[in-house]
Amino acid sequence: MRFTPEQLEAARDRVVPDVVAGGLRVLFCGINPGLMTAATGHHFARPGNRFWPVLHAAGFTPRRFHPAEQAELLDHGLGITNVVARPTARADELTPEEFREGGRILAEKVARLRPRWLAVAGVTAYRVAFGDKHAAIGPQERTLGETRIWALPNPSGLNAHWSLTTMAEEYGRLRAAAFGAGTAD
């Protein structure tokens, strides 16, 4: 579906519901919804975003899901939320205060839902939201209750430092930690 610039701008005020349930294996956490996500109501909806292909390539899903199929993630023990709920065209429109408040809200959400892993897709967002300046991609020492945390590369097409292959390898490390050697099924 194509949107006009006016339609995308109008989506700045929309709330994108989380895809969550209690006791998930992995709760993926984006930085914040993009305008395409806000316009469609589906997480990681921008065509250049690599979240859905990487999720499949890493073995989390049996096939490549489309953003409109996001609710099917729950059947695989997976969910999606964001650090900051406010939709923007780019993450650099967010303030450090929004990230810190988002981290606080996220910690409350994790305490309520108790996923095994919180996977933050964007190490810079994780650093600011949780005040951990030295965090690197991979598992973190910090936990939220019993929930372990993994900082993942941001799947945005703007993140050219990571190829689809290298990103899938890192996501695959998380999959192995969350599900063992097999797939999420």
Rank of each mutant, 00 (worst) to 15 (best):
M1W: 12
E6V: 00
E9D: 15
A10W: 10
V19A: 12
V20G: 07
L24H: 05
V26K: 05
V26C: 09
I31F: 11
P33H: 12
P33S: 12
M36G: 09
M36F: 13
A39E: 01
T40A: 13
R46H: 13
N49A: 13
A57L: 15
A58K: 00
A58G: 14
G59R: 06
F60W: 11
F60L: 13
T61L: 14
P62T: 14
P67L: 02
E69R: 05
E72W: 12
L73V: 04
G77N: 09
G79K: 06
N82S: 14
V83K: 07
T88Y: 04
R90W: 04
R90S: 10
A91M: 12
L94Q: 06
L94Y: 08
T95L: 13
E98Q: 15
E98C: 08
R104Y: 05
I105E: 09
A107Y: 02
E108N: 02
R112F: 07
R114K: 13
W117E: 07
L118V: 08
G122C: 02
T124S: 05
A125P: 02
A125R: 09
R127H: 00
H134V: 08
P139V: 01
Q140D: 07
Q140P: 03
L144A: 04
T147R: 06
R148K: 15
I149F: 05
N159L: 09
H161G: 05
S163Q: 00
L164E: 01
M167T: 11
M167S: 12
Y171M: 04
F179I: 14
G180A: 13
A181H: 14
A181Q: 14
G182N: 14
